[in-house]
Amino acid sequence: MSELYIGLMSGTSLDGIDAGLVDFSDDQCRVVDFHYLPFSESLKQQIRHLSQPEQPILLADYGSMDTRLGRLFAETVIALLKKTALSAESINAIGSHGLTVFHAPQSRFPFSLQIGDPNIIAETTGITTVADLRRRDIAAQGQGAPLVPAFHQSFFSRHKENFCVVNIGGIANITVINKDCVLGFDTGPGNTLMDYWIRKNLNQSHDRNGDWARSGTVNPLLLAQFKNDPYFQLAPAKSTGKEYFSSFWLEHKINQFPELPSEDIQATLCQLTADTITDDISQYAADAQETLICGGGCHNHHLVQLIAENLQHSVSSTGDYGINPDHVEAVAFAWLARQTLLNQPGNLYKATGANAPAILGGIYPGKKGLSGKG
């Protein structure tokens, strides 16, 4: 008997919505199909506006985007089901990450805010939806992020031991797995600053293959200025977001280098991402035998090459172990939905810093009850 779940993910790179249909039957994890809905440039700009810490936003804009994204998430699920010719009744549940507009786990009143109304997803698709997955961990004194290490441990440790998984989205995070412990945290910026800089200078959404960064020269003084940020000195548990590593952060840092060519700044940003990932691997996973890469950053060939050059062990793709690197996060949120419906914890609390394991998220029943099957 199949155990079908759908995971929905829209990350800090703001490229679009990933939807993965996953079969967990027989204690396996098999991706049945996948669908991607890209965001329009207009929509990306509107979402970015909601995530700028130095700018005020209107509640009307926030509420409207919450509804709009809820509809888009639901449309993505329906498109995925059409591709597979499966009915909504055959799906146990949807796990929806939503889209993070602000992540502040270390503020006086800690919070992490995702939008994409799950009521609309459940009502439109008829499928039970598990969402708002970060805030229960924060309520347990955790960071609410990263949540994927628990899935990394569950799936990849079947194939490997003593290794790392690095997810490079807008923000990069690492999972360290060995026989003694499992550790996970955000290392710092992944693609977010590079995406901003190429968008500003070349009007391109991202640095394809890292070619623009490769054309520049790393500036060691600017790199040191970047790496001097206090976040990189923090010990885990820690998490961050694009509201911290923002355009304001970057512009403030580069003001001291007014004559530096824009391609050199891009090269230095790429080196920053590579160095902060590998510095943490060297510190917290010195005995790791392999690093697996996933997330959009795996397509930045220059970045992956820099990471490999910094490490003394092999670097490969999660695709070598059964999950396309573009699909890992969506699959993880399908798994988290299953954990919640099974009344099982979804956080790796030693990674997030929570005081205990927690069953994550709110459950929004589908039209035929919690099982989604009638």
Results as ranks from 00 to 15, higher is better:
165 V>S: 03
354 A>D: 00
109 F>L: 09
334 A>F: 09
112 S>L: 11
208 R>S: 13
128 T>F: 10
207 D>F: 15
268 T>P: 13
90 S>G: 07
167 N>H: 13
228 N>I: 05
253 K>Q: 04
271 Q>C: 06
192 T>W: 11
286 A>I: 04
120 I>L: 15
217 T>W: 11
236 P>H: 02
225 Q>F: 07
111 F>R: 03
266 Q>Y: 11
315 V>P: 15
144 G>A: 09
134 R>G: 06
88 A>P: 15
305 Q>M: 14
153 Q>I: 06
336 L>G: 03
373 K>F: 12
321 Y>W: 15
204 Q>V: 14
268 T>L: 09
238 K>M: 04
92 N>D: 02
295 G>I: 14
156 F>R: 03
179 K>N: 04
65 M>L: 12
182 V>H: 02
109 F>E: 00
4 L>S: 06
313 H>F: 15
86 L>F: 15
363 I>A: 01
7 G>Q: 05
73 F>T: 03
184 G>D: 00
358 A>Y: 08
348 L>K: 01
41 E>W: 14
85 A>Y: 09
98 G>R: 03
13 S>I: 12
314 S>Q: 12
232 F>Q: 01
349 Y>R: 00
119 N>E: 05
279 D>E: 06
81 L>V: 02
97 H>C: 06
308 A>M: 09
21 L>Q: 04
290 E>Q: 03
251 E>I: 13
127 I>A: 01
364 Y>P: 07
256 Q>T: 06
17 I>E: 00
348 L>P: 14
269 L>E: 04
104 A>E: 00
141 Q>L: 09
186 D>C: 03
192 T>M: 15
284 Y>T: 00
278 T>S: 06
245 F>I: 08
104 A>H: 01
137 D>A: 11
223 L>K: 04
33 D>M: 13
145 A>C: 14
337 A>G: 07
182 V>W: 02
99 L>E: 01
